[in-house]
Design a protein around this nucleic acid. Sequence first.
DNA 1: GTTCGATTCAACCATGTGGTTGAATGTACC
DNA 2: GGTACATTCAACCACATGGTTGAATCGAAC
Lengths: 114, 114
Amino acid sequence: MVESNAARLDSIFHALADPTRRALLRDVSAGEKSVGDLARPHALTLAAVSKHLKVLEAAELVARQRRGSFQIVRLNAPVLHEADEWLAYYRPFWSTRLDALAQHLEQEPEGESR
Amino acid sequence: MVESNAARLDSIFHALADPTRRALLRDVSAGEKSVGDLARPHALTLAAVSKHLKVLEAAELVARQRRGSFQIVRLNAPVLHEADEWLAYYRPFWSTRLDALAQHLEQEPEGESR
DNA sequence: GTTCGATTCAACCATGTGGTTGAATGTACC
DNA sequence: GGTACATTCAACCACATGGTTGAATCGAAC
């Protein structure tokens, strides 16, 4: 559906594969925050948090915007929707609706790669 | 809910952050496969595929079982459900139901860490 | 324009990743 | 028990990651 889906999923899942980054994402889901605000609750240097934010930004999970001398970070949730759509393919496999599974398997497996 | 949720999500999302591993997962979703079967369509050595499977197995996304001289790999979909549950928290943010979002934000953000 | 606060950059370090090759293991078959 | 096949292990490589520290940048305020 989307063009280079695989590379996008790479960066999204990679960004989510770190507990600090998931925590940052959760923190920022409560509303816009400056980098300093985001760093404060974590036992990390600002530079480290800045790097994590760069990973989240590369995956477009957050967006930055300068406001005065602050960098304001906000959640970009629709990107998580892409991960959700990838997962959706497997939903029939953990739900108990085996008939749905059978029907599911007749379809082509959604072309992410190649 | 689960004990060390964060570490599990780390390994799950990390496993999903590679296109080869996502492809292997999709391949194995069509039914049990030997390692050789799984390796064939990919332009990789068997050893490389074996390593990828080890990552998927560490995340418990697949399970192995010896059958004769073959290693049979099968999907363990319920683990994907854990990733799905993590994502569920963010669903209100990309859906347009902003009233749901407001209600959502009043709740505690689900304790994965600390 | 200097100083202060917020953030990033650069260099460095230890460790992990994804791949290779070639040897080793394990099971089946004759 | 030897041979063939399926898979893994070990060693190696180049490169990415997650963290640090200290210098550099950028905007605001005096």
